[in-house]
Nucleic acid binder design. Structure first.
Lengths: 213, 213, 213, 213
DNA sequence: TATGAATGAGAATTCATTCAT
DNA sequence: GATGAATGAATTCTCATTCAT
């Protein structure tokens, strides 16, 4: 489970190593159960060094949140969503969705250690949820709305589907797919991921109703 | 955020109070950040009393998992799912789904404190995931398959939708709906929950595709 | 390792059971490491019952000491020593010693659990040593002195050997023999105990010196 | 009651202080009754510091055993025994024994605090006995056998006395002498120790038998 | 009298944080 | 800047003792 690359963010070398190590350790054990000693060992620095860069253990977590939000909302999230949106001009919705979902799966594979930490903290702390909302959700929504508008205008999405409903449906299916892969990967012999995604897109597009419904 | 009622499970009075308190405290802070001292204070017992009923702090968590799985997989989950399945005989799929989703929302509202603890632990511990899978997922799947078969036979569900895909779609949409209500409830002025559910069911049934797709 | 019989000492039935259990548990783990809970369980009484008979845990120990001293100094020690002394009238010293040592070995086998507790406490507490001295050593010395006098008069013991030296030599050899059997029994293939005792008596009587010394 | 010097064993300064303090406190109260808090106070370190050097309280005890066995079996025991053996070439047995016993008394005076801890643990734990046997008894026996052989060849020891019997007799008399001095020192106005030793050696060499036996 | 649930003082242990080197 | 030994407050856990039934 690889750790996202934090280089090129203007961090001191040791600071970066500490953050990477912290993501790893927090992700293995959760914030409270992780120890600064283990983070230090893992980062190859002395325990005291951690406290040169981060006043408290909690600050390390805050550092991770900041980095994660930078990465997710910055380069990765917005850019990627925009790219797919902009590339979507002439394409079928099915194709756009497929690219989007595969791209998101790759992203989550990449940031899963971070994500696990964030999810846990978000479950317990309002301020983390607030940060996620302000920095990620709200900004992504802007892009999504433009995408939604374009698709509706091209008649590819039903006009009575609101942008919120659109993202919720896609997100919902995505979440379950990822949870299944990441948490219960050994329980289900998944078809190859490609087929799996195709099936989900089919349901997103046309629903489950039979002809008698 | 109310604590599920543990009475009638054959627990000693203090044991029940401790478990309820533990659910509350774990749910507020997570397992590691919670202290036995706080659990005791909250339960109105001496700290030592906790350890008469639970050998270690970890055992309290295990106790909660056991109770939760009892409650969820026992009475609540299986029974409820079966009830809806059995009641579904002549009904439209839309109506069955609506009852099902409302019922699940009510359930989650009820057990959210517990659920939050379980989710966190499941994210970090394989054995918790295993317990969830064996006691809940695997058992619910049996019921779902029967439901799926019935619906397909009546032509209410497309015959090319597998049971796994069915549950994943419903679950995915449900998860996002609940997360939105529970975690970002202040961000979205939700239409009343009834309309919200209707919209989701509409998407589940017919998808998002416009007539040009 | 059997527990000495405390019946016929005018103790209440439960009190006796508690003492017997305490000897067993103290002997297995030492006083501090033993718990009243285990003593109670082992005695087949409730934990609270212990404190009806003994104000504190320490009092149980004191009870054991008292019983032990009663048993050892009372019936067992004095009587036995006197018996051997009185029976010694016409006998060879070798025979008297043999009876005495065998009898002591049997006694220690019998009271080893108690003895282990006493030794430990004696190592650490002056008052226990004092009790041992007053109740056992000092009283036994009286008998020994009579025995010594008789033996010296009969010319069976060198006249320049003082009673203290006599008892110390016998006791020293006895202690090592018993320690070897009880603590390192698996290390030495002992000849049968009878031969072992004969050899020791031989050394006690005639020493180790060769003819050149 | 002085604590053996642990310097020059390559221990960190605090580690040494903790061990010395632990020997002192264990020796005063026994292992279970001693508290890490008292050990820390006595060593002049914070309680937490103890656990930087020893994972658990039990490890401190193990540390003491290791040091004791190092000291006893290493420099002190083996060397001393060998020295006396090698110096015994032309000497009378009486003189060799006298040197040996005086040397052992000095040793025990030195390590009595440690010895008390070890004896207590040995009474209750097979593994401690095993360590004592392997590291001390078994090794000393090798030297003793050579000594025995030499003495028998020179006709200073009866040829029918086996080495085991030799060491047991000497040890037995030594143990009682030391116990008397250390535990009941106030009870007996000892002749000066020198005379006391002479008497014991006399008995070891020639026994107690009078001319009529 | 006997019980055993409940207590709470105190024990071992952990770990974030400090600071002299 | 970097280190890591030292700290001590906080935490989990134990257990002798009490007391209502």
């Amino acid at each position: 489970m690889d750790i996202p690359d934090l280089s090129g963010l203007g961090l001191a070398e040791k600071e970066q190593k500490i953050l990477e190590s912290a993501i790893h350790v927090f992700s293995e054990k959760g914030f409270s159960a992780a120890t600064t000693s283990e983070i230090a060992k893992n980062a190859g620095v002395a325990e005291g060094t951690i406290f040169r860069y981060f006043k408290t253990k909690k600050d390390i977590l805050r550092g991770i949140l900041v980095q994660t939000i930078n990465i997710m909302s910055g380069k990765v999230v917005i850019e990627a969503v925009e790219k797919i949106l902009n590339d979507s001009e002439g394409k079928e919705l099915r194709v756009v969705l497929k690219e989007f979902i595969h791209d998101r799966i790759k992203l989550v594979d990449h940031i899963f250690p971070m994500a696990r930490v964030i999810i846990t903290e978000a479950l317990f702390h309002e301020d983390v949820r607030e940060a996620i909302y302000q920095n990620i959700i709200a900004r992504v929504m802007i892009t999504i709305r433009r995408f939604h508008k374009q698709m509706v205008e091209r008649g590819l999405i039903r006009s009575d589907i609101e942008p919120e409903l659109l993202i919720k449906t896609i997100l919902g299916n995505l979440v379950v797919l990822i949870a299944q892969r990441k948490l219960f990967g050994d329980k289900f012999e998944l078809d190859d991921i490609d087929k799996e995604v195709d099936k989900i897109i089919d349901v997103i597009l046309y629903g489950i109703a039979g002809d008698k419904e």
